[in-house]
């Protein structure tokens, strides 16, 4: 029972230790700079749409499909609009790696705790 108590105590410590929330999505805790690409760019949309009338309807439809909802594509190394979901994945969010590590340690302690607590219950 001691191990179970220790495991529970560690579970609580780890749960409280990272942002005082048990579990959360990346978008819930992402810092401003991680999310800012969606809305904070200053674009000269008028300039981009200056020559729109020169395109045929077919070409415009093709562009709309290729470029996404905002109608333009950023250069290499910059995020495009509507791609926040892509960067809200664990590999792209180093600020969540600590939580992953905390969860992993919690599971490890729980595993050891359960193994030791159930050890003496039955021989065969």
């Amino acid at each position: 029972m001691r191990w179970l108590a220790c495991s529970l105590a560690l579970f609580i410590v780890f749960s409280v230790g990272s942002g005082c929330r048990t579990d959360y999505d990346i978008a819930d805790v992402a810092p401003e700079e991680h999310l800012e690409s969606e809305d904070h760019h200053d674009h000269d949309h008028d300039h981009e749409h200056e020559n729109e009338h020169e395109h045929s309807i077919d070409e415009e439809m093709e562009e709309a499909h290729a470029e996404g909802p905002s109608g333009h594509v950023h250069g290499a190394g910059e995020r495009n609009h509507g791609t926040q979901w892509f960067f809200n994945q664990p590999w792209a969010a180093p600020f969540i790696w600590g939580k992953l590590f905390r969860d992993a340690l919690t599971f490890l302690f729980l595993a050891v705790g359960i193994f030791l607590v159930t050890r003496r219950r039955r021989k065969i």
């Binding site: 590590f101 969860d103 992993a104 599971f107 490890l108 595993a111 359960i114 193994f115």
Partner: peptide, 11 residues
């Protein structure tokens, strides 16, 4: 993370 979770499920 994956290994720890597998250990938890096995336990």
């Amino acid at each position: 993370y994956g290994l720890c979770y597998s250990a938890f499920m096995l336990s």
